[in-house]
Design a protein around this nucleic acid. Sequence first.
DNA 1: GGATTGGCTGAGCAATTTGCCTAGTGAGAT
DNA 2: ATCTCACTAGGCAAATTGCTCAGCCAATCC
Lengths: 157, 157
Amino acid sequence: MAIDHLDGQLLVLLAEEPRIGVLEMSRRLGVARGTVQARLDRLQSNGVIRGFGPQVDPAALGYPVTAFATLQIRQGQGADVRAHLATVPEVLELHTTTGSGDMLCRLVARSNADLQRVIDRVVGFDGIVRAATAIVMENPVPLRIIPLVEQAAEDRD
Amino acid sequence: MAIDHLDGQLLVLLAEEPRIGVLEMSRRLGVARGTVQARLDRLQSNGVIRGFGPQVDPAALGYPVTAFATLQIRQGQGADVRAHLATVPEVLELHTTTGSGDMLCRLVARSNADLQRVIDRVVGFDGIVRAATAIVMENPVPLRIIPLVEQAAEDRD
DNA sequence: GGATTGGCTGAGCAATTTGCCTAGTGAGAT
DNA sequence: ATCTCACTAGGCAAATTGCTCAGCCAATCC
């Protein structure tokens, strides 16, 4: 399940130049095309590579404000709250965390004023007891995976 | 800068079948190939589409544990802390948030035990005053963008 | 009322890439 | 000693890409 060095190189290459083709990858890495193809297939069926969906920037879509909200859920209402939050487009992700009935969600909004609307919509639901929101000011480390891939590849190598 | 309906369809299509080609997209959407190409180019130079990097699952890499850590930073140490956290592969993202000197970071680890090691490494740095960690148990809504894309497309349409 | 600009269509073409196949080789496991 | 597995190297037809062109239409500008 873990990846070896070649897998790591493949992932790094893909991350740097995503539109690169299989043939070009095989040239860059100095291996046969069939090998690249087989590795890629394996990584995908392994689940290591979930997909190649476009990475969309919410800010460019008109949602420049990001916030994280910690929610406290009334016992037994978890499923309802999850279903509710899933219907809000501005909820980009949702996690349940340690601490009985706690959730953490990532929100975006069109402005700070708009964030209020989003939060109202999020917490305007019966099962939510309390919510604490932290607005994101800077994002010094955007979501990344390459350093982890490299470490995983080294561990296995 | 906002997107219209065709842009929205393009993004949805790409999200569903990322390896689809320009030609096939133009067939599906019933527009000319050149149009798809031009739209895609525009979305990319717009910054709406950041890229098409592979979405790697940390769990499949051997890091099944995710956690969020809230850090309190000593005044004036922000830059140092950022630089420090950027060197830790297990730090997948880092945000500075409202509340002077507060940061939120996403961590992964090989196990709950390993999480302790990661946290020690994260907080074992001078500028960090205090850290609170919440371990993720479930992820009812994985990072998504499509609902927001659809809303943005409708708003503009 | 024109005239212009911008976005879309439909078509064509050469070059490249893909998907799929076969055969041979080397290393490690049984 | 044999087998299996991953990789190499090559070949081939079909499809896709990158690029170009001309024509068309609607909105905007003078």
